[in-house]
Design a protein around this nucleic acid. Sequence first.
DNA 1: CAGTATCCTGAAAGATACTG
DNA 2: CAGTATCTTTCAGGATACTG
Lengths: 137, 137
Amino acid sequence: MSVGHTAVTTRRPVVWCDDGVDCGIRDLLNRLGDRWSVLAVVELAQGVRRFRELQRALPGISQRMLTLTVRRLERDGLVSRTVHPTVPPQVEYELTPLGHSLTHLVRAMVDWSYSHHDAIVTSRREWDEANPGSEIR
Amino acid sequence: MSVGHTAVTTRRPVVWCDDGVDCGIRDLLNRLGDRWSVLAVVELAQGVRRFRELQRALPGISQRMLTLTVRRLERDGLVSRTVHPTVPPQVEYELTPLGHSLTHLVRAMVDWSYSHHDAIVTSRREWDEANPGSEIR
DNA sequence: CAGTATCCTGAAAGATACTG
DNA sequence: CAGTATCTTTCAGGATACTG
C-alpha cells in the first residue's frame, strides 16, 4: 500500500492512504486537538508528575478533565501511570518512549505559536476591521 | 518578559508566560485542533486550490464547514483568497508565507502519526482489553 | 490524594435548502 | 461555482457532590 503524501505526482488528498483509510493523522489530531492533552504532554516532558502537580500545572483544568486526559494519553501509550499503594494514595505519571518521541513535535508547535502569535493576532485584527459584523471568529 | 519554556529550572507550567498569559499555543490548537484545518493546510501545501477542489480533497466535509475552515484560516493569515470575477465564479485559495511556515510542522505531524499509528492502535487494544467496560475512549 | 458519579450547557459540526 | 441561511444534533468540557 502506497501513501499519498509520499508522492508529489498526485493531486489526491495527501493525508489519506490509497484505500481511503486514514493513516493516523485524524487519531493524532483527535487526541492532541482537545483542550488539555498537549499542555499535559508539555508538562510531563519536564519529568514525572503526580496527579495534583499536573492539575496545578494546568490552571483551569477540572479534576474530571485531568482524569480523562491522562487516561486517554495512557490508553494511547503516550503516558504511563504508576500507583504507589500508600495512604494517602500516590500516583505518578510519566511519558513513555512513545510519548517522548512526540515532544519534539509538541515543542515545535509551542515554538511556532510563540514565534507567530503576534502575526496571527495582527492578521485577525485587520481581517475583523475589513469584515465588520462577520460571524467568523 | 521571560517565557517559562525557555527555563529548565522552573517547575511552573512551561507553555504559559510569567504573567500567566497564554503565549499562543492555545490559539494554534484551537485552529489546528478542529476537524478540518490541518487537512486543508496539508492540501494547500501542494499548491493553489479552488473551492471545489478543496472540497473534493477533503472527503466528508460539508460546504458550510469548508467555508468556515478557509475563512478562519484566512482570518489568521495562513491562507489567501483570490476571487476571479468570472461566470461562473472562480475563487482560489493559497497558503501565505505564514501558512507555508506551518507546513513543516504539519508535515512533521503527519509523518509522526503515520510512523506511530500502529503503536497507538496496539496500545489502545491492549488497554481496552485490560480495562473492560471502561468509559474511556 | 486521587479519583468517580451525575448533571448540564455551549460550541462545533452536520443536514438541508436556497442564490448571485 | 462558490457560497448563505437555518435548523438540528452531538458531545467535549465544566460544575458539583461524593469516596476509598
